[in-house]
């Protein structure tokens, strides 16, 4: 589903964020990416979203070489990927409902369908009753779950999460991870960057380890 072939990323200052990374991730996999801060986890996820382009090597998703996607093709590409950010990135002046509805509005669903899907997604993350709330009135864990609902509402084939439990206590973190496992069980490819080794090693999924931009473990399933 996702394939990195000797991908390197060198930033303008000459810093290598990724070095010759090769990895294949299957369609029904849930994979953790771990490593110290600055190891290149975020950079790897950003490449999948085309927020960053490789300096060398190729990224292929679902058989499509990402190098072939030009600036005009990026929005369509991103619509097939659900993303969860560490700091949620919610629209603070919109309700929970409107935040979750955003990908559907962009994709152009009609109103009734938007309502149906948003409520299904909110139900899944246990926030159905808070659809009219503003994000600031929610706890950190709840905000993160709104972000997850937004990532899954468009039924993407891939979900990326960058440190989704970074600010949460262990109990909440476990709950969030369980949500991702549930999405994975219905056939979604899930990629989670996290340095919470204690949590992810309990979960029995493949773990890819990066060190200073090099892939040091987990390249094969």
């Amino acid at each position: 589903m996702i394939s990195f072939d000797r991908v390197s990323k060198r930033f303008a200052q000459g810093h290598d964020a990724l070095r010759e990374v090769s990895v294949d991730i299957g369609k029904d996999e849930l994979v953790f990416i771990t490593g110290h801060s600055g190891a290149g986890k975020t950079t790897l996820l950003r490449m999948i979203m085309l927020m960053e382009r490789p300096s060398r090597g190729q990224v292929t998703i679902d058989g499509q070489n990402l190098a072939a996607i030009g600036p005009r093709g990026i929005p369509r590409h991103r619509r097939n990927i659900g993303v969860v950010f560490q700091n949620h990135r919610l629209l603070m002046d919109r309700t929970v409902f409107d935040n979750v509805a955003l990908p559907l509005i962009i994709a152009g669903y009609d109103q009734r369908e938007v309502g149906r899907r948003v409520r299904a997604a909110l139900d899944k993350v246990g926030l159905l009753k808070r659809e009219r709330a503003m994000p600031v009135t929610l706890s950190g864990g709840e905000q993160q779950r709104v972000g997850i609902a937004r990532a899954v509402v468009g039924k993407p084939k891939i979900i990326l999460a960058d440190e989704p439990t970074g600010n949460l206590d262990p109990a909440l973190s476990a709950e969030i991870m369980q949500l991702f496992e549930e999405f994975n069980q219905v056939g979604v490819t899930v990629l989670i960057a996290s340095h919470d080794l204690a949590l992810i090693s309990r979960l029995r999924h493949r773990i890819i380890t990066l060190r200073e931009g090099r892939l040091v473990a987990g390249s094969k399933a």
Binding site: H77, L90, I106
Partner: peptide
Amino acid sequence: VIVKLVGGSN
């Protein structure tokens, strides 16, 4: 930024 991240076109 958020709209562009979730796939909004220009």
